[in-house]
Amino acid sequence: MSTLTKDQRQELEQALLEQREDLQRHFESSMEDGAPAESLKDSTGELSSYDNHPADAGTETFERSRDLAIDDTLTDEFNQVNDALERMEEGTYGTCVTCGKNIPFERLEAIPYTAYCIDHTPNRDVSNDRPVEEEVITMPPSGAGEVRQRNAGKFDNAEAWEAVEEYGTSNSPAMAAKRDVQDYDENM
Rank of each mutant, 00 (worst) to 15 (best):
T75L: 13
E13S: 06
V81H: 02
K6F: 15
E11K: 13
L17C: 03
E38C: 01
E21V: 01
A115F: 01
D7V: 03
R130A: 07
S49L: 12
E133G: 10
E18H: 09
E28C: 01
A152E: 15
E63F: 10
A144E: 15
N171M: 13
L16N: 10
V126Y: 11
E89N: 09
Q19I: 04
E11N: 08
S127N: 10
Q24F: 06
V132Y: 05
E77P: 03
D7E: 15
L23R: 03
G34Y: 02
T98M: 13
P54D: 00
R150A: 13
T138S: 15
R87E: 00
A15W: 00
E90K: 10
M188T: 01
M88N: 00
N187V: 08
Q10V: 10
V136E: 07
M139L: 05
P104M: 14
V164M: 15
R150V: 14
V164R: 13
K154G: 14
I70N: 06
T44H: 00
P54I: 11
N171S: 14
V81K: 01
E135N: 10
E13K: 14
D129I: 15
R148Y: 14
E86G: 03
L47M: 04
R124V: 12
G153D: 02
R150M: 13
T3G: 07
E90V: 09
A163N: 08
P36F: 00
D83Q: 04
P141A: 12
R130Y: 09
P104N: 10
N171K: 09
G91D: 06
W161R: 14
L23T: 07
N187Y: 11
S30T: 14
D180I: 00
D76I: 10
D33R: 05
I118Y: 10
A160I: 03
E77K: 07
D119V: 14
L108T: 03
S127H: 11
L47V: 06
G94Q: 01
R20E: 12
E28Y: 04
S2D: 05
T73L: 01
E134I: 04
E162M: 14
R148N: 12
D67P: 00
S2Q: 02
K101C: 07
D156S: 09
T73K: 08
K41I: 08
D119R: 02
Y93A: 00
M31N: 04
R66W: 12
N157W: 15
R87V: 01
E13N: 04
P104H: 15
V126G: 11
E109L: 15
